[in-house]
């Protein structure tokens, strides 16, 4: 049985004068997943998230959240009722205190979890009477996360949630997120350029480059499918092309030939036998390797 899709974008495009931010982005985020959106700076992650929240109007294509059109004013309000959003700018209201901002936000959400807010205020050690403008970057991020988590949202959209945080604060934020998802079953769609962070918490991942998804799927499936085949020859490795499906990149280094494949490692080894290698080994690859291979190929 397939999981229902919470976020779906089809051919999503956004053009800012002469800059193409999104160039036919296709994504499907399953319900209940922790979905990491990986990409370099400027790849289109923030624009994609803003489009889903109705902050940016797409130039072409469709974006749906909960089956509702994200670019229509009326349905966008319905989406925002059920979604918590943390922007990468953490631009909260500077002149309010922490307690004021919590009370302000609570007023817009009938399903606001006051008990949860009180718990996060304590565990994040947020000073309630302090003005937001006087908070550290870490405390601002924790407050922004609290405001997103406690609204009883079914979906969290987090744009670079841990950027600029020290490792301890980043870990605190990630642990809070993991425990919230475990308890509440919320779907999380988050962007990051920290591959380790995505590997730590995501179960689905997409790699986005120049406004297009170059890879999308369940992290376990990707780990299972992607392989590096290392072939060693007696003399210099032959300059050859592989015809097996799934070959992403072939690299020659002296006697060694390295084949990076998205699938079909066994078939590649079979094809390589005709070249007479002295050894042929298949290695698992990390998400970082997949990311670098795909991004450098696109580049």
């Amino acid at each position: 049985m397939t999981e229902p899709i919470i976020i779906k974008t089809v051919g999503l495009k956004k053009q800012y004068q002469d800059v193409t931010a999104l160039d036919g982005l296709n994504l499907s985020v399953p319900s209940g997943s922790i979905y990491g959106l990986l990409g370099r700076n400027g790849a289109g992650k923030t624009t994609a998230m803003k489009t889903l929240m109705g902050l940016v109007r797409p130039t072409a294509g469709t974006a749906q959240v909960f089956g509702l059109a994200a670019d229509q004013s009326a349905t966008s309000i319905l989406i925002r009722q059920r979604t918590g959003f943390v922007s990468d700018e953490r631009d909260l209201y500077e002149s309010m205190t922490v307690a004021d901002l919590i009370a302000f936000t609570a007023a817009f959400y009938p399903r606001w979890r006051a008990d949860m807010a009180a718990r996060y205020v304590r565990s994040f050690d947020l000073p309630q009477s302090r003005a937001v403008k006087a908070l550290s970057r870490g405390a601002r991020t924790k407050l922004a996360l609290l405001l997103a988590l406690c609204r009883g949202a079914e979906l969290l959209i987090l744009d670079e949630a841990t950027s600029g945080l020290d490792p301890v604060a980043a870990e605190e934020v990630l642990q809070a997120l993991i425990s919230h998802v475990a308890n509440e079953g919320t779907t999380v769609f988050f962007s990051s350029h920290q591959i380790a962070e995505v590997e730590q918490i995501a179960d689905h991942v997409a790699i986005i480059d120049r406004g297009r998804a170059v890879l999308e799927g369940a992290l376990d499936d990707l780990r299972e499918a992607y392989r590096r085949v290392e072939l060693v020859f007696e003399g210099d490795a032959p300059a050859t092309q592989f015809h097996s499906p799934g070959v992403v990149r072939v690299e020659r280094r002296g006697r060694a030939l390295s084949v990076f494949a998205s699938s079909g490692a066994e078939q590649i080894i079979e094809e390589a036998r005709s070249l007479g290698p002295v050894s042929a080994e298949t290695h698992h690859v990390t998400l970082k390797e997949v990311f670098l291979e795909l991004i450098s190929r696109e580049g």
């Binding site: 902050l55 004013s73 009326a74 319905l78 959003f85 631009d91 909260l92 817009f108």
Partner: peptide
Amino acid sequence: TGALFTLSLPVSRR
């Protein structure tokens, strides 16, 4: 300040 936060609330721009 806070424009993105305001716009993420379930309220129309109007």
